[in-house]
């Protein structure tokens, strides 16, 4: 495991080709006139544009979430033919959340950092996007989990057999709190929804995956709900990581 040292001498970026910059096509201004209406009362603005994004999220009840999650599962179950079909649909439902959570969490990190926006420091603290695999995994395991569930995930491991596979372990996924799986579908793990969120984060950060999936950990007595999120990164991501490692002085 490379240690999280900060001295990374990144290779210089390729020089910009200014000679040809006027060939970049400029789109003509769009004729579209937005027609959305917003509340008008000045003293009492309530739109999302008036609210601070870095405001800490408030709390709501776990049962309310459970009712909604149940509704989501029921909806997709009714439209699915198989267990893997349900999991795919739940994964797709979570995916766009992940894409947005990456930006939101990085924005909040930057806003909360001592130096404020653009403050110097390690990536992560400054709100920079994770660019190395380990940073990304720590972001998912720590920042994402804390942002969603108020605690970090329970373990982060690399597969012993395949180097592009990583596992994030949650002993007791919050989303499964009130979920019971019927015997004939025992393979189904509804945390596939969270796997979708993770996949969205990885993709949005530029770490393409062949999929993120949620699996029950076998033979666990202490944590019956223990779930393993399997992240399978694409070959090109691993190659890029190798390249960065070689060129970046061990990172």
């Amino acid at each position: 495991m490379p240690a999280a040292t900060t001295t990374t001498a990144a290779p210089p970026p390729p020089p910009l080709d200014f000679k040809n910059s006027d060939t970049i096509p400029v789109l003509p201004p769009s004729k579209h006139q937005p027609s959305l209406r917003y509340p008008s009362s000045g003293s009492h603005r309530k739109t999302i544009y008036d609210r601070s994004l870095s405001r800490p999220p408030s709390a709501t009840s776990l049962p309310a979430f459970a009712y909604l999650f149940n509704t989501l599962i029921t909806y997709h179950h009714a439209k699915s033919g198989s267990v893997s079909d349900i999991e795919t649909r739940l994964n797709r439902a979570g995916y766009p959340i992940g894409v947005k959570m990456l930006d939101l969490l990085l924005y909040r990190q930057a806003a909360a950092a001592p130096g404020g926006f653009g403050g110097a420091g390690k990536s992560g603290a400054s709100g920079a996007r994770p660019t190395r695999l380990l940073e990304l995994l720590q972001f998912v395991h720590g920042t994402l989990w804390r942002g969603l569930f108020g605690r970090q995930a329970d373990a982060l491991e690399q597969s012993t057999t395949k180097k592009n596979e990583y596992m994030i372990v949650d002993n007791e996924p919050v989303v499964n709190t009130y979920v019971t799986i019927p015997r004939e579908m025992s393979q189904l793990n509804c945390a596939a929804f969270v796997a979708g969120v993770v996949e969205g984060v990885c993709d949005a950060a530029g770490f393409g995956t062949e999929g993120v999936s949620a699996h029950w950990a076998e033979g666990e007595e202490m944590w019956p709900g223990k779930t393993i999120f399997l992240l399978r990164f694409r070959e090109e991501v691993m190659e890029r990581e190798e390249g960065l490692k070689a060129g970046g002085g061990g990172g």
Partner: peptide
Amino acid sequence: KINAEVLTLT
């Protein structure tokens, strides 16, 4: 309790 944003996003 749970983070309200999880509910919102779901």
